[in-house]
Each structure stands twice: as C-alpha cells, then as structure tokens.
Design a protein around this nucleic acid. Structure first.
Lengths: 329, 329
DNA sequence: CTGAAAGCGCTAACAC
DNA sequence: GTGTTAGCGCTTTCAG
C-alpha cells in the first residue's frame, strides 16, 4: 500500500479511500491510484483491515464437522457455504473424526483466527471452554446435536420422531422381529434413533434382542448384518439407522440374496436407494437445509445479539420405495 | 494481552514470551502469567501474530473446488486436510460451481486473507491475474486439470490413459457400437477422456455416432441414456466418463431393464458399483490421494522455492466387476 | 532474563 | 477533498 501511495504520489489514506470505494476522492486522483494498484498488482491485506476495523472478527466462519468425506457432512457444508457466500464471508473447515481432542484443537485454532462465528456439527467434548468466547460475542450454532451446554442455537433433525416412524412402519407391515443397526452412541443422533426404536418396540410389546451399535463404517455394518442374517434365528426386518450402516447392510443382504425376504428401512437417504432392487425405504434428512439454516441462524445472531437461543427441529417423512414394505414370511 | 500483562504485573513482551514458549522466562513469572491467561480466558490473536511475523502468510491454505457436495471433491478435500493438519495449518474452502467469476472471487478473497498457498481443483478462468502473487511467493497447486498458465505444480489422474483403457476393454469384449456419455468439455478431465475415446475408436476403425456431452447431473445423464437406449438403432455398450454420469446411466438401464444386455464401463468409482446387478466395471480415481499429493507438493514448495514445477500423474487400473464384460448380443 | 520502543498493513479520528 | 497521527494485537529489535 505504501508502494502504491508513492507510485501515485498520494498519501496512504487516499489509497485506503480508493480501495474502500469512499466517495470523497477526486476522479483524477482515483484514476492515478487505480493505475498504480494495477501496475503493482497490489492486493489489500484483509487481515490488517479487519484487525484495525474491529479487533474481533475477520469476516470468516469456522465449521467443525465429523468428516467432510461423509456425503452427509459434505452436503451440509455446501448448504452453509451458500448462505455464507451471500454475506461475503469465508469458511475455515475441519474434520474432527469425532475425536474430542481434534475437535477442541480445531475450535481453538478457529477462535485464534478470530472467526466471527462457529458452526459445530461434531461435538463430543463439552466445549465449556467456549463459554468465555460466547460471552465475548462469538456466536455458536450446533448442528444435529444437543450440546452439553446451552451456549448457542441448535439446528437439527427430529431423530426421535423419524426413527419412531421407521419402526412403526415395519410394525405396521407385520414385523415383530426387528433388528436395530446403528453407529456409535457417542453421537446424539445415534442415541436418539436408538431410543425411539426401543420405545416404540416396547410399546408394541416386542422384544429387542438385536441392538447392534458402534457400526462406524460400511464394512463393519456389512459384517455385522451378514453375521446376523446368517443365524437360524434371525430377524425379519432391519432398521438401519445411518447412511453408512444402510449401505453395509444392503451389501450384506445382496451378498446373501435375502433382499426380497428381509425388510429394511434406513435413516438418511443414500445414492443407492433407487438403484438397488428392491428400492430402499428411508427416512431422509436434508443436510443441505441443516447447513443453510445453521448459516442463517449465525448471521441472524451476528446482526442482533442478546435474544435467547433458538432450537430448530426439522421433521422428516418416510419415503416408501419397496424394501420397507416386504412382509414377514 | 495487555490485560494479561497488567494482571500478572509484567510487560507485554513477557506475556508474548510465555505464549510462544520461549525458554528464557523465569518459572515464577511464567506461572503468574499462565494463571492470568487462564483467569481471563485469553486467546492470542493469530492474525496479529502472523501479521507482525511475516507480513505475508497466515498458516492457512485456500482450496477452490467445483462442488464440495460432489463426493469426488469431498474426498479430495479430506486428503488435503489430513496433510495440512499435520503441519498445523487451516484451510479455507470454497465451491465455484465451475463459474469463472466465482472462481476468481474465491481466489482473490483467499489471497486477501494472505493464505500461504492455493490448491485449485476448479479452474475455467485463466487465472493469469495470479502471476503477480506467484512471483511474490504464493505457491499454487492445480489438481486434476491443466492450467492455462505454467504457474504451479500439477497433480492429476491420467484421464487419457484411463479412458483409453476403458474403451479398449469394451472393444476387446467384442463391442464396436459404443456410446460416450460425459460431462461438460469445459473440464480438462472431460476433454481428455473424450479425446481418448475418440482416438481409440478411430484406431479400431469404429465410427462414433454417439458422443454425448454436457451431462452435468445424474438426472440429465439418465434422460440422455434413456433416450439413447430406447432407439431401435442403439449402441451395445456405454462408456460413462464421470461419476454422476455413470449413476444416471445405470438408473436408465435399470429403468429399461437392459442392464444385462448393454455393457457399461464407468470412469470414477461410485458407491453403487458393487450393489447393482451386474456390478459396475470402472476405472477408479483416487481423490484422497490427489488431495494428499497436492498438500505435499504445496508444503514442499513452501519449504524450498525455486525449483521448476512438477507434474504428478496418477495412473489408474480398470476394475472388472461384470457390467463391462457383457458381450454384444 | 526482562522491558521499552518501533512497526507489520491498514483504518479511525481528527486535522488542514 | 486530502493528509497526519495514533493504534488494532502482536512480535521484532535492541537496551538494560
């Protein structure tokens, strides 16, 4: 900037005014400055600008997710990005792999960069160290989880309602021997879905001898489903409570050739749902909407602080496609 | 920081020394400072630190991709993130939707934040405005494309070789009537794959009346494949040259019930490949490896500048799974 | 081993 | 309209 000012023969402040499009610069001077900027390939340093302007804030956001390679989070990220872009903000993104240390490391790094807000879609640590930041004005939005502490808005799917719907759907189609396959109970969503399944089964007077959890990859799920369906005493239906779990279970069923005998309802929509035979009955989430809503909440809070935190819960509908309508044989 | 210094009764510089773990601080003072830091919930401002330290550089990277919601880019991002994390850097990520304006907007925003380097996996604009930055020391890595200008390292898949392999595979299985379905020729990868197909078909003396391009969504691809396969005069095999294109074409084939008559080889691996019947023969890429290699190149260049740019080309192998081994009827 | 002064690149506040 | 001064939060440089 100093170089530009020298080249144009003006003061620093005049260059600053041109860069910021302030009206009060004579046309001639402005031209001189603009040519100097072009000639020197000058790009203003936003870090210094925002540092001086606000001391806190950098027109950027931090996004902590479990794993960007999981299409669910990738779609959420995209939804968030679309909102953020409209505001001219940038996003720092990081995957935690559900590791509390990595989570805290990311959050601290984002805070140190003075992000204007944090979207957290992965929280196992209690994040109470954030309390000071929140009081200092950094808004937090939690996506698809219930934080241990009341420190920000929450946007999430109605996991309990969706899972109850899935379970009832299978009961209504005559099943009483239903297995639950889910991922790790470390996740709020997984706990809720399992709780709904257990509650609805209990209401219906059905035992639940098959409660499989901690299936974190398609491979683990496939192995578990394979073993389960190979037993003489096997369930007549599966409720697969997460996208990777569904993919693995479907592979196992196709491997064993039982996909037309055993019913299946999955939570989350998956690419394969309409391509396999029978097509998959699922309770989809809308990750893009979760991301967008999270972004909107964050900017709303940036605009006007002080109101009590809001909780947005997205309901989901069951999409019957075939696999969930198979009756017990 | 000033507050911490006051609370601890020391100078700013001493706090700075403690924060940076410089050895030369007396144990007693260090303790005083650390308690003050904890009591006040102080977090150093990395923007100011890096501003003073290097003026250029912020221990962060910019990643420009076409669309994070595309699993191919999401996996690439993850690979990049793993490398970046090991170095303690953060990543700004943005999707361009292959829009040159958005691309330039993102790149400029990243530069303005003084990222230490840029990974570009989406480039339609010629990015020549970056020349000044590159001379100024900001390294660039282009992933899966050939930049218009020689301004950085390149990491990419051997699209031509992979597509040639796919085409030959179909020829070797007796096909001569092969259709090409691909996405937009605005992408380097799409152009290369198409070029390989045309070359290999010409070598074999086969006409290529079916060259479908600009299929950018699964829906468009499904519609195009549906129309193509409904004709009396239809091809006996398809080469689907991108992940979304493959998904759409497979849907169309299953919709028409011709998946056991028409052969198919796809570029890119897809989740559905092992779940549909017949399973899909594909030439996979390794997006995670592309991301990791891009990160490694970038840090290598950060460590020692000045060497000529390198070009890393990943070869791929064809995975026969069934769909590509169907013979013409 | 510790502190005071200067300055990273920029802008707010106040001159002229 | 334009320039000067001070200072954002931190680190560098150089005294003590």
């Amino acid at each position: 900037m100093r170089d530009v000012a020298n080249a144009a023969g003006v003061s620093l402040k005049t260059v600053s005014r041109v860069v910021n499009n302030e009206a009060s610069v004579t046309a001639g001077l402005e031209q001189r400055v603009r040519s100097a900027i072009r000639a020197l390939g000058y790009q203003p340093d936003d870090r210094a600008r925002y540092l001086r302007r606000a001391a806190t804030g950098s027109r950027s956001l931090g996004f902590v997710q479990t794993d960007v390679a999981n299409p669910f989070f990738a779609a959420m990220f995209r939804g968030l990005e679309d909102v953020v872009r409209a505001e001219g903000f940038l996003v720092f993104a990081g995957s935690s792999d559900a590791d509390p240390d990595r989570e805290e490391e990311l959050v601290r790094a984002f805070i140190a960069r003075r992000v204007d807000g944090l979207v957290i879609a992965s929280a196992r640590s209690d994040l109470s160290f954030l309390a000071a930041e929140v009081e200092h004005g950094t808004p937090l939005v939690f996506v698809d989880l219930e934080p241990a502490i009341d420190l920000g808005d929450v946007v999430r799917t109605d996991h309990y309602g969706g899972a109850a719907m899935a379970t009832r759907h299978l009961l209504e189609h005559g099943h009483r021997r239903i297995a639950f396959l889910g991922d790790s109970p470390m996740f709020f969503s997984a706990r809720e879905r399992r709780r709904a399944f257990v509650d609805v089964m209990a209401e219906a007077g059905c035992p639940t001898p098959w409660l499989l959890t901690d299936l974190t990859t398609p491979e683990e799920s496939e192995a578990a489903a394979h073993e389960l369906l190979n037993r003489a005493d096997r369930p007549t239906a599966l409720f697969t409570a997460q996208n990777f779990v569904t993919i693995g279970a479907v592979k196992a069923m196709h491997g064993l050739g039982v996909q037309h005998e055993i019913a299946l309802v999955g939570f989350d929509d998956v690419d394969i749902a309409e391509l396999v035979e029978p097509k998959l009955t699922v309770v989809p989430q809308d990750p893009g909407a979760l991301g967008r809503l999270a972004g909107e909440r964050l900017f709303a809070r940036l605009a006007s602080t002080g109101r009590p935190f809001e909780r947005t819960v997205l309901e989901s509908k069951l999409i019957p496609r075939g696999s969930g309508e198979i009756r017990p044989s």
